[in-house]
Design a protein around this nucleic acid. Sequence first.
DNA 1: GTCAACAATCATGTATGCAAGATTTTCTCT
DNA 2: AGAGAAAATCTTGCATACATGATTGTTGAC
Lengths: 224, 224
Amino acid sequence: MRGEQTPRLREALEDDIVAGRLKPGQRLDEVGLAERFGVSRTPIREALIQLSSSGLVEIRPRRGAFVVLLGPRELIESFELMAEIEASCGRLAVQRMGPSDREAISEAHETCRIAAAAGDEEAYYPANARFHGAIYAATGNRVLAGEALRLQRALQPYRRLQLKVPRRVEASFAEHQGIVDALFADDGPRAAERLRAHVLVQGERFMTLLAALQAESEALEDAG
Amino acid sequence: MRGEQTPRLREALEDDIVAGRLKPGQRLDEVGLAERFGVSRTPIREALIQLSSSGLVEIRPRRGAFVVLLGPRELIESFELMAEIEASCGRLAVQRMGPSDREAISEAHETCRIAAAAGDEEAYYPANARFHGAIYAATGNRVLAGEALRLQRALQPYRRLQLKVPRRVEASFAEHQGIVDALFADDGPRAAERLRAHVLVQGERFMTLLAALQAESEALEDAG
DNA sequence: GTCAACAATCATGTATGCAAGATTTTCTCT
DNA sequence: AGAGAAAATCTTGCATACATGATTGTTGAC
């Protein structure tokens, strides 16, 4: 056995969670994961601890590790934090982005346009992540960009649940257009405001969906 | 042996780092720490992994764990992130703070005043942390407040090095006064701007100090 | 039939053992 | 004596073992 299992395991689990193969609330059995990856519990535990620090996993003492399931309040608060950070990124990006940053943003935006025009939600997700990532990178602040990326991933499992919101992709792309316009007009405050609104409205859309789902499940409970 | 060593160890190490008893760049030997705390390496390792995720420790594969020593660039970037988050907190606090929040801010501010008037740097530190913490809490957003607190602690070891900057405490308190004025005048944008400036200027002061220290050490090298 | 208590089972938390990479020391050659 | 290579030492990364708290299943009483 030649070293460095933990990073690989962390990434694999992270991918599984972000991609939705491991669902929020699901329990992560150490022995099961150890068998699945062909390692002992030790590196699995270390990977889980790292994931708990990045917000994707919750470890309850003596109870085990669970894929984080944010409650409504935490979700709202997380989206608000995300909105604030994205707004900051937008303002700073306007001040500092160079030609290659503009190119990266334009390119990701075009990829979004294609996916949106085709109504291809599966393609829109990664394009959207790249678009926002390009804005983070354009700030030139790696610490800030790293925080933004971490939060983006932590919230990804919940964005995934928005699949059924009608015309979601079209609305998102229209907002992107407004953001790009502000960025390329070197209007920092406007870019910040539009990014903030873009993220907050996502959160709100999600909460609406959540309320609908809860009402539905309660109706089922009453019926059953 | 009755469970749950890891959290205790994490807190103890965190305190040591934040309080400066473990200095940036210092190596953290697993065996040594295990002996010191009277446990095996396993919970020590887990605590170190957690600290690495919260930004206080850096783990280099096969090399060991080190108290994080941010380079100039990372320091500037971290202070900028902190400034953005604090600005957001200020703006949101104006929108949402209740009477008890105002009281907590006032109280912490008065404690700062006393420490500043006495020129008591040791007392000013915790009072300053409480003042900022009261603003985070006033946002009503626990996720945001948690992030702000995490960053505050990650940067604490570097703030500590500013001890020798002349009239630092007086300048800081004067800035606090401006922040409080804006907050209590319900002027969100102004509070945000003043908080941003307050944190950024701290970073700049620190960088100036750092440059001076480096010049000094280089002069010593040349002489020796 | 339901609930409670107890026993058996299971998973986690920690300790210990071992292999491999990193570091330091020593030895050799120039 | 200094530089480089080889060996000894040390430390980390992972595997395994074991004890304790959690969970589940069973039995018995009401």
